[in-house]
């Protein structure tokens, strides 16, 4: 294992984050605060409690997930797309590093960044709404698992994309709608039965549900199912990445 290479990639990516602190950390925090103001304070004050939890507190896990998913995907996608775009990828391909080491470096950095972001949003939320975390360890586990899984997905998108437009399109057209429809702002129970069934095909439902359970012990689906589904996505992403490096897809000619 070339640990120094992993370290080099990780440090490189993290320093890129620090260079773009405003865009990477500040802007998601501000937009999350706006969600809290609009949904939590303005609209939430007219919504009664959901399963005994105030609406403001109810949406916190969903909002964290919303940022976690979109940021994980876009960070990791950009991280690997940019060297492909500029051509500096030559260095990765000609270095004595394995596919696994490259993935650990890039995905590790992207996941670290979105976990930090999630924790910052959590801290921000704690200032606005009263929060109670029932299972901190489970919360941490879901946070890490989700960040890693969606950073892997982002990595795949970054390798697949051939233009900046394609790089943006998946987060915009797929991840954001799935997150909004994944129970970030409501409980699946509140939907008509047909849509409840449809929702079960949305992977984000399981993430939000499991994550929310770790806060409130309330969930739309069983926590075991949530965990299982998250791990399943993780494995699927790993398999796709394995295939990418085996075939050299979009990396080597």
């Amino acid at each position: 294992m070339n640990f120094r290479a992993i370290g080099a990639i990780y440090v490189f990516e993290m320093s890129r984050t620090l260079r773009t602190l405003l865009q990477s950390i500040v802007s998601p925090v501000i937009s999350t605060c706006l969600y809290f103001v609009v949904f939590g304070a303005a609209i939430g004050s007219r919504i009664s409690e959901i399963d005994g939890v105030s609406y403001g507190a109810f949406i916190v896990p969903g909002l964290i997930m919303l940022s976690l998913l979109t940021q994980s995907v876009s960070n990791a996608a950009f991280g690997i797309y940019f060297p492909r775009f500029t051509g500096t990828i030559y260095e990765l391909l000609s270095a004595p590093v394995s596919a696994l080491e490259i993935v650990i470096g890039y995905v590790g950095a992207a996941a670290t960044k979105s976990i930090a972001l999630g924790l910052i949003i959590l801290a921000t939320a704690a200032l606005i709404v009263p929060l109670n975390i029932a299972h901190p360890l489970w919360m941490a586990a879901f946070l890490v698992l989700t960040a890693v899984t969606f950073s892997l997905l982002g990595f795949i998108i970054g390798i697949w994309a051939e233009t900046f437009e394609q790089l943006q399109i998946v987060p915009l057209l797929v991840i954001t709608p799935l997150t909004f429809l994944g129970g970030s702002f409501y409980s699946i129970d509140m939907l008509p039965p047909v849509w409840q069934t449809v929702s079960l095909f949305n992977p984000v439902v399981y993430l939000v549900s499991g994550f929310r359970w770790s806060f409130t012990e309330i969930s739309d689906v069983g926590v075991g199912v949530s965990l299982g589904m998250t791990c399943l996505f993780l494995v699927i992403c790993l398999m796709i990445i394995g295939w990418i490096f085996k075939t050299g897809y979009r990396l080597k000619t």
Binding site: R4, A5, G7, A8, I9, V11, F12, S15, A95, V97
Partner: peptide
């Protein structure tokens, strides 16, 4: 940084 990065990538201390 960029030169040091390459050295790290090639596994050298």
């Amino acid at each position: 940084n960029t030169v040091s990065f390459t050295r790290g990538l090639f596994g050298k201390p």
